[in-house]
């Protein structure tokens, strides 16, 4: 399952062949580099590639070089298909049913009050929020809290996201894109407010278009911890396509 949902790669050097199981739609650039290095380190030439795409199919390649070329080709084809799935453009506070966002920005300053923030999230922003903590050791962004207002998550999926990395969403590409937004705010230290037009693929469901305005902002740090908060409002009047 980890190959089907997270884009990790399973490799094995067996007596018969080098075996690689890969989901080209999800695999990350770094995983792909790791695979190329692993291939270069092996002996033997014959490679069996298991490709996950609505079930598994297998291809046998006579050499490592051809296998590498084939894998890069499979991944590139998927990348072309997902280009343009996640679009965003800067939103104006005035245009984005601004009051709750403005209140949130005001509350998340140095005198941040948890109770008031929770009230704004619940009553002004339909409980659509994600609270993320930077783990200083690993540099990962960990989801520490999540509102119940997000549609599309099954109960089990929600539980698996909590305490995990922000990138590990049921749609991993979407998770990486969301993670990029958090990291941008982390780097710049200023809130990000944007309109989003995203096509999200939840496992087992048809791709669905989600339109919303999102605010990502740093929350005042205490005890040296770094926290970020993302909140969003669904809006039917966004069209970035």
């Amino acid at each position: 399952p980890i190959l089907e949902t997270r884009g990790w790669i399973l490799v094995e050097n067996s007596a018969i062949a080098l075996k690689i199981d890969i989901n080209p739609a999800l695999v990350s650039e770094k995983a792909l580099c790791g695979l190329i290095y692993w291939l270069a380190d092996q002996e033997g030439e014959r490679v069996i590639i298991g490709v996950c795409d609505d079930g598994w199919s297998h291809e046998v390649l006579p050499s490592r070089r051809l296998a590498q070329r084939r894998i890069v080709e499979l991944v590139s084809a998927c990348r072309r298909n997902r280009d343009g799935r996640f679009l965003a453009s800067s939103a104006e506070l005035a245009a984005a049913r601004a009051a709750p966002f403005r209140a949130l920005i005001a509350e998340c300053g140095p005198t941040a009050d948890r109770g008031r923030i929770a009230d704004i999230l619940r009553n002004g922003l339909a409980d659509r929020y994600t609270a993320v903590r930077l783990d200083p050791g690993s540099g990962e962004l960990i989801v520490e809290g999540m509102g119940e207002g997000y549609r599309g998550y099954a109960a089990g999926q929600r539980a698996s996201i909590l305490n995990g990395r922000v990138e590990d969403q049921p749609d991993y590409d979407y998770g990486r894109w969301v993670g990029d937004g958090f990291r941008q705010v982390l780097k710049q230290g200023t809130p990000l407010l944007e309109d989003v037009d995203a096509i999200i693929n939840w496992p087992g469901a048809e791709p669905r278009r989600h339109l919303y305005t999102r605010l990502v902002l740093p929350i005042a740090r205490k005890k040296g911890e770094t926290w970020l908060l993302s909140a969003s409002l669904e809006r039917s009047d966004i069209d970035l396509r």
Binding site: R6, L10, E12, V27, S28, L32, G34, Y172
Partner: peptide
């Protein structure tokens, strides 16, 4: 021996 390559490109034992 089977190994996993994670999304950071690290090899992990399976």
């Amino acid at each position: 021996e089977s190994l996993l390559i994670d999304d950071e490109g690290r090899l992990r034992k399976y």
